[in-house]
Design a protein around this nucleic acid. Structure first.
Lengths: 342, 342
DNA sequence: TTGTACGCGTTATCAT
DNA sequence: ATGATAACGCGTACAA
């Protein structure tokens, strides 16, 4: 019952008395086969349970349908949402996606890119615009279609779609200034680990500085940038700081909610005793008793746009090298009302 | 400056006046090359920037280092945590992982498995034990190492590591009975979509039935099984139900927190007016003002164990076909204290 | 220890 | 519209 012999193009051809080339053409749906022959071939292929050998195909053609996607992490919904946005486009265009998580290590990303190239990848998606030193030049030399997503730059490796994180930080900072805050703190991860977070902090810094606030107290914490870390780091901020901050900004909304919980737990009233702000407007924000003041990033749209552009790029179309998705401040209930509209 | 010519085994051999085979052997680190030759070859390979062609390698050897991992979704931390648990083992063993998300579609999973086989995958990881009808027999015929993870069964396709979701539901149900609850509700997704959730509900049902409670009111909701859906569905449960439940169990802790928020918002006191329970003990539970009563699943351990076993299986070792990771009830503050220890 | 011949399954090229 | 031939880059099997 079990058919041990692998059925390939050769076997199908033999069955019908046709050459391998006709079979290959029919199977790939390219020109050069009569309608009858094609139909016959497809029938036999289905009946015999033919499956293409992708390795052979890729070796012979020097092409593949593989798109490699490098992400720092899958926690905290941001990257899964970007992925979800990309999926339909890649599926429709017939590409297979290979996801890797780098855990924010540029070295790991660079290694992984090489392995994807070893597989003859058709294109790459990298997170952010900060990579291992040689990677940029290498990908340019190879001329492999590469999408940098999530962050922005004027001069991407190839093409990019993302948000301006400095601007996002600046927007939030300006709003908080307008709310009357002037003793800001920031809770995040070690510097250099998440470059986007670093940029948001820079934007915040500029806004607060020009607004006449005191220097931002920065609290950094290892581990997953989520609820628990947000809570723990908040303890650090409130205890260790020389002056108690009047508002704490967090790397993202999950950390912010952790901080909000902590404040509530120790009896601090939010927003009266202290303000809380996050980034990204994550799903959880829709159901919190106190909605968090945050900056909206359109992650699904970003993924969809990025995938569409990368596919076009692979197909040789000329497209915008840089697409910037706008961010928007979203006032919540964890900060005081702004004195006047910013 | 740019070296257009792809450097392969042939080029390295030519450079040193050696045959391709010696180069191949040295590069793969197998026996049969003198130390000097090997060293020379490795040096030249590095200098010339040699990169192995994975497709050619896989085609010639009929092997690959690819492990395909099929997951229903990347949202809600469960599967990212399982992935994180598998990572170190697969990395060390030199395997590349290809992740696909099926969005709970068995058909999509089956299609994707075929594509992985087209790439000559060394092994597969599938989520759960419920798959498309023919998939099971197909993988057995092919004898491809396959790990089923997250759920349990006595007769896996090949090997399995997971938790007993029926038992998890039963544990929770028994505890809630001991707390005095007898008008239970369950909030989840449409039946058949998440088979593990279905099993947890079955376990709950058995426990409540034997405990003399009324039938479980079931509320199902489309979309991402997370905060927002949990909140929305709770509204449905409380309005539409003929009798108001005294405890609501949710598919997972994220939905449970959504429900908790909703109850608080409409002025219901938890746990005095109504009890709330979840599943999985997700990270968020560590920082909630009211910790959720839940059932602990050890997802990192599960991933690590599964990966270890799959690698052993690929290497031909004989291992346990079924590994069951125990679950444990974790009493929180969203339910009444149990009358006596269960 | 090293080398030779051949095949993996498919596609490109150039014929007919 | 169809076919013959030669790659693609590497590994297996066997020989020297």
């Amino acid at each position: 019952m079990s058919r041990k012999a692998p059925v390939g193009i050769k076997e199908i051809g033999a069955e019908l008395g046709l050459s391998m080339m006709s079979v290959s053409r029919a199977l790939r749906g390219v020109e050069g086969v009569s309608v009858d022959t094609r139909e016959a071939i497809l029938n036999v292929a289905k009946r015999m349970g033919y499956r293409p050998n992708r390795n052979a195909r890729s070796l012979a053609s020097a092409h593949s349908t593989l798109i490699g996607i490098s992400l720092p992490t899958l926690f905290s919904d941001v990257f899964p949402e970007i992925l979800a946005g990309m999926r339909a486009t890649f599926d429709h265009a017939g590409f297979d996606t290979v996801i890797d998580t780098t855990d924010y290590s540029p070295a790991r990303e660079a290694d992984w890119v090489e392995r994807m190239l070893d597989w003859n990848a058709a294109g790459l998606v990298l997170s952010g615009v900060d990579h291992a030193p040689e990677l940029r030049q290498r990908l340019r030399d190879l001329q492999i279609p590469t999408l940098e997503i999530w962050d922005t730059t004027d001069d991407p490796i190839d093409i990019s779609v993302g948000v301006d994180h400095y601007e996002a930080g600046f927007q939030l900072g300006q709003h908080l200034i307008a709310c009357g805050y002037n003793r800001p703190a920031f809770v995040g991860v070690p510097e250099g680990r998440d470059r986007r977070a670093d940029k948001r902090l820079e934007g915040l810094g500029t806004a607060f500085r020009t607004g006449g606030a005191s220097n931002i107290i920065v609290q950094r914490i290892e581990g997953r940038a989520a609820f628990e870390a947000g809570s723990a780091a908040t303890g650090g901020v409130l205890c260790a700081a020389p002056v108690r901050p009047d508002v704490i900004c967090y790397l993202n909304d999950h950390m912010a909610f952790g901080g909000l919980s902590y404040c509530t737990k120790i009896g601090l009233a939010v927003p009266d005793d202290i303000g809380i702000a996050g980034f990204n407007d994550l799903e959880i924000n829709k159901i919190l008793p106190l909605s968090i003041t945050t900056v909206v990033t359109q992650r699904h749209l970003m993924g969809a746009t990025g995938a569409k552009n990368l596919v076009a790029r692979i197909n040789g179309a000329v497209i915008d090298r840089c697409v910037r998705i706008p961010t928007r401040l979203k006032e919540g209930q964890t900060t005081l009302r702004a004195a006047r509209k910013t």
